[in-house]
C-alpha cells in the first residue's frame, strides 16, 4: 500500500521536475533523493520507461565528455496535459484527506 502510494506520487513528481527543463536520470535522482522520495536508483528507470512508453516523456541522446552518452528526458505536450490533470487530482485528494483527518480530530476533542 505504502509502496503503491509512493509510486503514484513519484510519477507526478518526475513529470513536474521535467515540466520546465529537460534532465537526465542522475539529475532527477538527485532531486528525488533530496526529498527522500526514492531510496535506490533502480526504482526510477522502470518509471521513466513507463512514462516514455505512454508518450508522456521523450528523450534524446547527448554525448558526455566524461563517461557514456546520456539520455536527456523532456516532457511532451501529452505529458503536460496529464500533469495538469494529476495536479488537480492531487489537490482534491489532499483536500479530502485533510478534511477527513481534521473531522476525526474534532470528534476526538468533543
Amino acid at each position: 500500500m505504502k509502496a503503491q502510494m509512493r509510486k503514484g506520487v513519484l510519477e507526478l513528481c518526475v513529470l513536474s521536475l521535467l515540466e520546465h527543463a529537460e534532465a537526465y536520470p542522475s539529475d532527477i535522482i538527485k532531486q528525488l533523493k533530496e526529498s527522500k522520495l526514492i531510496v535506490v536508483e533502480g526504482t526510477l528507470y522502470p518509471l521513466l520507461n513507463r512514462l516514455k512508453n505512454s508518450s508522456l516523456l521523450s528523450y534524446h541522446w547527448i554525448e558526455s565528455k566524461a563517461g557514456p552518452p546520456r539520455k536527456y528526458y523532456f516532457i511532451t505536450d501529452e505529458g503536460k496535459g496529464v500533469l495538469t490533470e494529476m495536479r488537480e487530482t492531487w489537490k482534491e485528494l489532499n483536500h479530502a484527506v485533510e478534511s477527513t483527518t481534521k473531522q476525526k480530530q474534532k470528534l476526538k476533542q468533543k
Binding site: V40, E41, T43
Partner: peptide, 13 residues
Amino acid sequence: IAIMGTPEDFGAT
C-alpha cells in the same frame, strides 16, 4: 549495487 538497489528495494516485494 547499494546505490542502484535490489528488486526488494524497488517496492515490488
